[in-house]
Write a protein that binds this DNA or RNA. Structure first.
Length: 652
RNA sequence: GCGCCCGUAGCUCAGCUGGAUAGAGCGUCAGACUCCGGAUCUGAAGGUCCCGCGUUCGAAUCGCGGCGGGCGCACCA
C-alpha cells in the first residue's frame, strides 16, 4: 500500500528504504493545498474571525517588562519568541490569548519614584534633578505627548535615573528606607488600606510613571509587530485580593504551614523537601508569606497562575486601554489586529461589563520567562499542584530561554568601562540597575538607518533615468515609502536574529551580526519572497501567464515526469516540510526551527531562479512547471514569514 | 556544595528520539550570461565534533567520569 503521490518504494540495503515520488501529482496536490481557496480560510488569515478550536484556549504570557525604564534587547528576545509562538499556534488553528503582565507595584518602579521625589539625595544630584524635572514634565502631560518630545524619551530618562538610584543605594543605605516607604505607599493604595495624603500622592506618581512607561514599551513592540490581548496589572491582583483566595486554597489543601520555630519562624512556607523535583536541595522550603505578613513574589505568582488556569474564585474587571492617536483612533489593538486591547481593573468604575469573564480560563498556560527563573517557576507550578490542581500544574509550561548578554566588545562600543575581570569573560550580563544594556529602540533605529541607507543607495545608483517611467523598474522611492520599507526590513532582520538561535543558547550580542542584512538573515528571506512575486509581475508584463490558476494545478498532474528535474524538485521537496515544521514547533516549543526552514526554502528558491529561467523557458510546458515551483515557493514563504512575523516588503 | 545549560570550521551557529561523505552563514580566495533584480548565485580552502572510558554492527548524537565556560539554589522580584 502506498499513497498516490508515491511512485515506487525501494529497499536500499543498510536498512534504508527509498520512496520515489510521482512528481507531477505531488506538486499538483501541494499547490492545491497551499493556495488558500475558501472564504473561511481567508477570513481566518485576515484575523477578522477567530477560528474556534475544540482544544480550548492557550494563554501565552510574554514581554512582562518592569515598567520603570526603556526596554532592552533581552526584552526583545522575550517578546519575539512569545509572539512567534503565538503565531505558530494560531497557524495550527488554536485559540490563543496573549497576556503581558505588568508589575506596576514592584521595587523597580518604586526605585525610580524615589529618584523622582528625592533627586537631591542621589549620587550626582545635579544630573538627577535634571532627569527628574524632565520626566515630571512628561508625566504631568501624560497621556498627551509634549511637543518635541517623542514618548520614548521617558523610557530613556527613566533608564538613566534608575541607574543613578542604583548607584546611590550602594553608597547611601538610608535610601533604602525611602524605597520601603514608597513601596508601602504604593501597596497600601492598591489594596485600599489606610494611608496618608502624601502616600496617596506617591502612589499616584508611581501609577502614572508605570502607565507612561508601559505605553513606551507598547510602542516599541508595535514597531516590530508584537501585540497583546490583555495587560494584567499587579496592582489589580492586590486590589482583587487574589492572594486571599489562593491562600485559602493552599491552607485547605494543607499545602502551607505556619512555622513556629527555626529560621523561618512566623512565616507560611510550602515544604518542598519530599518532592522529587526538589531533591538534593539543602533548604527546599519556600516562604510564601513573610513573618511581617506580606506575600512574596512567588506567593503572588501562584495566585496569578491559578487565575490563568481558571482555578481561582476571583476575577478582574476589565477596561479598554484608553490611549488615542492623533486621529482619535485607539493607539493599540489586540493581537488579532482589530479588537480592542484590554487591561485589568481593580474596581468596576469605568470597567467594560461586556468584557467580564472573557479573559483567563486557559486550557493551557505558557509563560515565556528567561531560564534564570526556572527555580521560582518550578515552585509556582508545584504550588498549583499542591493547591489541589495537579492537572492544572501539568497544563502549565515554563517556556525557558537563555538571556541576551553583551560581548566585551559590544560594551566598549557602548562606551562602558569594564573591569579587568569582565573584559576576560566571554560575555557580560546586561543590568538595568547598572545601566548596562542595549536599548531596544536604539538597536531598531540602527537597523532602520542601515536599511534606509541601502534603499537610498540602490535607488540613486540605478543606471538609467528611464527607470522612473518604468512601472516595474526600481524607481526612486519616495521618502515615505523608503521609510516604510526600511522599517519592514529592520523588523525582519531583528525578528530573525532573535529567533534563529535555539532557545537554550545565550545570545552574546554582537552589533555587526545583529545589523547584518546579508546571509542567514531576515532580509534574505524577504528578498526571496519579494523576488518570487516580482518574477510573476515580469511574466505578466511580458505577456505570459502569472501565478497558477486552480485548473493549472490540476493539469500539472498529467505532465511528463521528465519535466520535473532534480534541480527544480529540490525546492518542492523543501516546501514539503512546512506543515510538519509548524507542528514540530508547537510540540517542541523550539521556534528556531521556523527560521531554519524558511532559510532552506528561500535558499532553494534563490538557487532555482538562477538555474531555471522562466521568461526564457524553451516552451510553455517547461514554463508552466517552473511557474508552478515558484508559485509553491511564494505560498510557502508567505506562510512561514507570517508565522515569524516578518513582513514582506513591496520591493527591496 | 547541589541543580540546569553550553562546548562542532578562524568567528556565529545547525545537526543530538544513534545510521549514508559532519552541514550553513560570516570572513578569506576565485568566479557569475550584453542578465526574470548582485540584499542573489557558483566554486575552493578550512573540522583530533573539549578529553577519557563504556554501550553498540555503528556514537557529534546514548551512559559514566573529567576539563573549560555560563546561570540558578532569598522573609528580591
Amino acid at each position: 500500500m502506498k499513497p498516490a503521490s508515491v511512485r515506487e518504494v525501494k529497499v536500499e540495503g543498510g536498512g534504508y528504504v527509498n520512496f520515489f515520488f510521482d512528481r507531477p501529482r505531488t506538486l499538483s496536490a501541494m499547490l492545491s493545498a497551499a493556495a488558500p481557496k475558501d472564504a473561511a480560510f481567508a477570513a481566518a488569515a485576515a484575523g477578522s474571525e477567530r477560528v474556534t478550536s475544540p482544544l480550548g484556549k492557550i494563554i501565552v504570557e510574554h514581554t512582562n517588562i518592569n515598567p520603570n525604564k526603556a526596554a532592552h534587547i533581552g526584552h526583545l528576545r522575550n517578546a519575539v519568541l512569545g509572539d512567534v509562538l503565538v503565531r505558530n499556534f494560531r497557524r495550527l488553528g488554536r485559540t490563543v490569548e496573549v497576556q503581558n503582565y505588568l508589575d506596576d507595584t514592584g521595587v523597580q518602579v518604586a526605585d525610580v519614584v524615589v529618584g523622582l521625589m528625592h533627586p537631591e539625595a542621589l549620587v550626582t544630584p545635579d544630573r538627577a534633578e535634571e532627569l527628574a524635572a524632565e520626566m515630571k514634565e512628561i508625566l504631568d502631560a501624560f497621556p498627551d505627548d509634549l511637543p518635541g518630545n517623542e514618548p520614548r524619551r521617558l523610557g530613556d530618562l527613566a533608564w538613566d535615573l534608575y541607574t543613578l538610584v542604583g548607584k546611590s543605594y550602594a553608597v547611601d543605605k538610608s535610601l533604602e528606607e525611602r524605597r520601603k516607604a514608597t513601596l508601602h505607599a504604593i501597596e497600601a493604595t492598591a489594596i485600599g488600606s489606610e494611608r496618608t495624603p502624601e502616600e496617596e500622592a506617591t502612589a499616584r506618581l508611581a501609577a502614572r510613571l508605570s502607565e507612561a512607561v508601559v505605553r513606551c514599551h507598547l510602542k516599541t513592540m508595535e514597531r516590530i509587530g508584537v501585540s497583546y490581548d490583555l495587560l494584567p496589572r499587579e496592582s489589580d491582583i492586590l486590589a482583587r485580593k487574589f492572594w486571599v483566595k489562593a491562600f485559602d486554597l493552599l491552607k485547605a489543601a494543607n499545602a502551607v504551614h505556619l512555622e513556629t520555630e527555626g529560621k523561618n519562624a512566623g512565616c507560611w512556607v510550602m515544604r518542598l523537601e519530599g518532592s522529587k523535583e526538589f531533591e538534593g536541595m539543602e533548604d527546599a522550603d519556600k516562604i510564601l508569606v513573610r513573618s511581617n505578613g506580606t506575600v512574596t513574589y512567588t506567593g503572588k505568582d501562584v495566585a496569578y497562575q491559578l487565575w490563568k488556569l481558571g482555578h481561582l474564585e476571583a476575577d478582574f474587571e476589565y477596561e479598554r486601554v484608553p490611549y488615542r492617536d492623533m486621529e482619535g483612533n485607539p493607539e493599540f489593538l489586540a493581537s488579532d489586529g482589530t479588537s480592542s486591547l484590554y487591561r485589568t481593573r481593580g474596581d468596576a468604575v469605568g470597567a467594560d461589563p461586556a468584557a467580564k469573564g472573557r479573559f483567563g480560563h486557559g486550557e493551557a498556560v505558557i509563560n515565556v520567562i528567561d531560564v534564570r527563573q526556572s527555580y521560582p517557576q518550578k515552585v509556582v507550578k508545584e504550588g498549583v499542584r499542591r493547591a489541589g490542581f495537579p492537572e492544572g500544574a501539568d497544563r502549565s509550561t515554563h517556556f525557558a530561554y537563555e538571556m541576551v548578554a553583551l560581548t566585551p566588545a559590544s560594551c566598549e562600543a557602548l562606551g562602558v568601562e569594564l573591569s579587568e575581570e569582565d573584559r576576560a569573560r566571554p560575555f557580560v550580563e546586561m543590568s538595568g540597575r547598572k545601566g548596562l544594556g542595549v536599548k531596544a529602540e536604539d538597536l531598531l533605529d540602527a537597523l532602520f538607518e542601515k536599511a534606509h541607507d541601502r534603499i537610498v543607495a540602490a535607488s540613486s545608483s540605478s543606471p538609467m533615468p528611464v527607470q522612473q517611467q518604468d512601472p516595474d523598474g526600481m524607481h526612486v522611492p519616495s521618502g515615505l515609502s523608503a521609510a516604510i520599507l526600511a522599517q519592514e526590513i529592520a523588523t525582519g532582520a531583528l525578528r530573525v536574529y532573535m529567533t534563529r538561535f535555539s532557545r537554550n543558547k545565550v545570545i552574546a550580542f554582537d552589533f555587526e551580526e545583529a545589523l547584518a542584512l546579508e546571509g542567514d538573515t531576515g532580509p534574505y528571506l524577504q528578498y526571496g519572497a519579494v523576488r518570487a512575486k516580482k518574477i510573476f509581475q515580469k511574466l505578466v508584463s511580458s505577456g505570459f501567464a502569472g501565478r497558477l490558476t486552480a485548473d493549472e494545478f490540476e493539469s500539472l498532474a498529467s505532465l511528463d515526469p521528465a519535466l520535473f528535474d532534480d534541480g527544480l524538485w529540490d525546492v518542492v521537496r523543501t516546501c514539503g516540510r512546512t506543515l510538519e515544521t509548524f507542528e514540530k514547533v508547537a510540540e517542541s516549543l523550539e521556534v528556531s526551527l521556523l527560521v531554519r526552514h524558511a532559510l532552506a526554502v528561500a535558499g532553494a528558491f534563490h538557487h532555482l531562479y538562477h538555474t531555471h529561467p522562466l521568461l526564457k523557458a524553451e516552451n510553455d510546458t517547461v514554463r508552466l512547471v517552473r511557474r508552478a515551483a515558484v508559485d509553491l515557493v511564494a505560498w510557502h514563504l508567505d506562510d512561514v514569514l507570517s508565522v515569524l512575523g516578518v513582513p514582506v516588503p513591496e520591493r527591496m
